[in-house]
Design a protein around this nucleic acid. Structure first.
Lengths: 124, 124
DNA sequence: TCTTGACTTAGAGTTAACTCTAACTATTAT
DNA sequence: ATAATAGTTAGAGTTAACTCTAAGTCAAGA
């Protein structure tokens, strides 16, 4: 699969795909004899993981560290486990913050809905 | 309340407090006769809202827009409502992404836990 | 009165995560 | 064979959200 196809498939720019590879957020992608990227299934799985992590807000740095560890063999499994557990905790924290804000928003929205209906702002 | 006290209370730098005010993320804070910030209860509520929104990942731009609308009287209530509904939808989307990643992380973590116990990586 | 420490503003600098540019090479269609 | 298209790298530029610096003002204690 060419970089263009991958770009379309995952709706991500070619620049970003090259950037992810360059900084080590995904391992080096398979090339053709001419040196052109030719994404294999394994490469695509890395891309997909990278996109998923980034969209959840996990920093590029963490992903780079994880990729490094996977390249260094099975002795790094405990370190990988620790890294993933840390990121999971971060995400749980972030979800807490979002939930808190969602509640607050719901309250304000209800208040404004009443105001729009009645023409008057009520409470506080 | 001085900026220092607010800074300590909410664990946010004085620089950031001034920045929030400067860009209009919170309305202008009450001053002493000498021009020094003297946060009143209403000011603190804005600060708290700003911190809550930012920690949930709502962009500064959206908050600025919201503050502008609140300064422009009750005629802007429908616009405020729309803004808040949009932000709520964004947060729900973001939470979805986090949940997806959390599931993925849990799966990987389980796999690595088994690997650490048995000394062997299983599945895929 | 003098100094210390907290405050002020304006504006420059930093960081993360892209995003773009330039100069070049390779592949494909005519 | 050659033009158009798509790819390559190295490195500069951009954006959001702070964060820091400089130069100055103000209030309280020795």
């Amino acid at each position: 699969m060419t970089i263009k196809e991958v770009s379309n498939k995952y709706d991500i720019t070619q620049d970003t795909l090259r950037y992810y590879e360059r900084v080590g957020m995904i391992p080096t992608v398979t090339r053709t004899s001419g040196g052109i990227r030719d994404y294999q299934e394994a490469d695509l799985q890395w891309v997909e993981l990278a996109i998923c992590m980034r969209s959840a807000g996990i920093p590029v740095e963490a992903m780079i560290e994880y990729v490094k560890l996977t390249q260094d063999g099975e002795s790094t499994i405990p370190a990988r486990l620790q890294l993933l557990v840390e990121q999971k905790e971060n995400l749980l924290e972030q979800r807490e913050k979002i939930d808190k804000m969602l509640e607050r928003l719901s309250y304000k929205i209800k208040r404004y809905e009443v105001a729009v209906e009645t023409g008057k702002l009520t409470w506080d």
